[in-house]
Lab assay of single mutants.
Amino acid sequence: TEEYEYTDEQQAREAAREWREKGYTVTIEEHNGRWRVKTG
Rank of each mutant, 00 (worst) to 15 (best):
R20G: 06
T1I: 14
R36Q: 08
V37I: 11
W35D: 00
E14N: 11
R13L: 14
A12K: 00
W19E: 02
T1G: 13
A12G: 02
Y4I: 08
G23S: 02
V26Y: 03
H31V: 14
Q11L: 11
K22N: 05
Y24R: 04
K38M: 09
A15D: 03
E2I: 14
Q11Y: 05
E5R: 05
Q10S: 11
G23V: 01
E18K: 14
N32Q: 07
Y6T: 03
T25P: 06
W19R: 03
R36W: 14
Q11K: 10
E18I: 15
T27C: 09
R17W: 06
E29Y: 14
Y4G: 05
D8S: 13
T39S: 06
E9R: 05
N32M: 07
R34H: 08
A15W: 04
V26P: 03
Y4C: 11
E3T: 14
E2Y: 14
V26K: 01
W19N: 02
G40I: 15
R20T: 10
Y6R: 01
E2H: 15
T39N: 05
E14S: 10
W19Q: 03
G23F: 02
Y24S: 03
Y24V: 06
A16N: 01
T1Y: 15
T25I: 13
E9I: 10
Y24T: 03
E30D: 06
V37H: 01
E30W: 14
Y24N: 03
G33R: 03
V26C: 08
E30K: 10
G33A: 03
V26D: 00
E30F: 15
Y6G: 02
A12I: 01
E30M: 12
D8N: 12
A16P: 00
Q11W: 05
T7V: 12
G23E: 02
E18M: 14
R20W: 09
T27Y: 10
V26R: 01
W19T: 01
E29I: 12
W19Y: 08
Q10K: 12
G23Y: 02
T1F: 14
G33Y: 02
I28M: 06
A12S: 02
G33D: 04
E18D: 09
E3I: 15
A12M: 03
A12R: 00
G23H: 03
Y4N: 06
E2V: 14
E29V: 11
E2R: 14
